[in-house]
């Protein structure tokens, strides 16, 4: 293909991206580096403020825990799906994809019904006589985490199952024949072989949780803000546009750092697999 025609095909996309993404990002976020007395002072102030820091830490904590739970729940489930017959694999994959296609408002709303003070869990607990007054489950970090796990678990399952499907039964059988029980065979063979998929899933879940808006807004409420809800609050409620820009850039940097971190972790683990024990 001629270079010129290739350019013609690529240019429209690049122009729209430049005008509608890169330029706005630069124009809005770069000035935030220079506001205040010295370069980056807005960022220093952000991390000096205890309230801001708390929101930052909460966001990262929620993302870490959500990623952890999604891995613990998702990886074995993905393995289960990948070992099913073709028919069941289709059914279970559909059951996993269905929530992904359902709006996050609905999925968060589901947990309001379950965690609310008049919700399923509290009513069960009160009926059973375990508690007298409803527990405060909704509008807590716990609610955000469970809602986020609910939101992103299907993504982890589908991503990892896609990789595990390509691992033949003979791998497990070979490990068993060499004297590994099922759990060790899984940990020593299936898990390292699916690591690339687990890493991709981890990145998707972590960055997804880090930047999610709906779930923390609906399940965390105004008292348990995370960075994305905080941006909106700073800009729209308080009118602190510079503050919102600072938070925006922090979110982008954290996202990039996390992607980089996961990828280098993957590279390290891969090398370790090749070492002589």
């Amino acid at each position: 293909m001629k270079k010129r025609s290739a350019f013609v095909m690529i240019i429209p996309g690049l122009v729209i991206l430049a005008v509608c993404l890169f330029l706005p990002l630069l124009r809005v976020l770069i000035p935030s580096l220079h506001t205040g007395e010295y370069p980056l002072s807005a960022y220093v102030t952000f991390f000096q403020d205890e309230y801001y820091r708390k929101i930052f830490v909460r966001t990262v904590k929620v993302a870490c825990l959500t990623t952890g739970f999604c891995m613990v729940l998702g990886v074995p489930t993905a393995y289960f799906i990948s070992r099913c017959s073709k028919k069941w694999r289709g059914i279970l994959l559909s059951v996993s994809i269905f929530p992904m296609m359902t709006n996050s408002v609905i999925r968060s709303f589901a947990w309001i019904n379950i965690l609310g003070s008049n919700g399923l869990i509290n009513r069960l607990l009160i009926t059973a006589g375990i508690v007298e007054k409803p527990l405060k489950l909704l509008y807590t970090d716990f609610a955000i985490i469970i809602g986020s796990v609910y939101l992103f678990l299907p993504l982890m399952i589908v991503t990892v199952a896609g990789v595990m499907e390509n691992i033949g039964d003979d791998m497990m059988e070979a490990a068993l024949s060499l004297g590994a029980d099922r759990i060790r065979a899984f940990m020593k063979v299936i898990f390292p072989m699916s690591l690339p998929g687990i890493i991709v899933g981890g990145i998707l879940v972590f960055t997804g949780t880090l930047t999610a808006y709906t779930t923390p807004q609906l399940l965390g409420g105004n008292k348990n803000m995370v960075l994305s809800t905080f941006i909106y609050q700073r800009a729209m409620t308080v009118g602190d546009w510079d503050g919102a820009a600072v938070i925006s850039l922090i979110m982008i940097v954290v996202t990039l750092a996390v992607i980089k971190g996961f990828n280098s972790l993957a590279a390290r683990l891969d090398k370790r697999g090749g070492d002589h024990a």
């Binding site: 996309g13 991206l17 509608c20 993404l21 330029l23 706005p24 990002l25 124009r27 809005v28 976020l29 960055t207 880090l210 930047t211 808006y213 994305s228 941006i231 909106y232 800009a235 546009w241 919102a244 820009a245 925006s248 979110m251 982008i252 996202t255 990039l256 992607i259």
Partner: peptide, 19 residues
């Protein structure tokens, strides 16, 4: 071309609104 995925949605909305 894939870079929009690493910019948080709320940030995309925010900078587009401002700019």
């Amino acid at each position: 071309f894939l870079s929009p995925t690493i910019v948080p949605g709320i940030v995309i909305g925010f900078v587009l609104y401002q700019f």
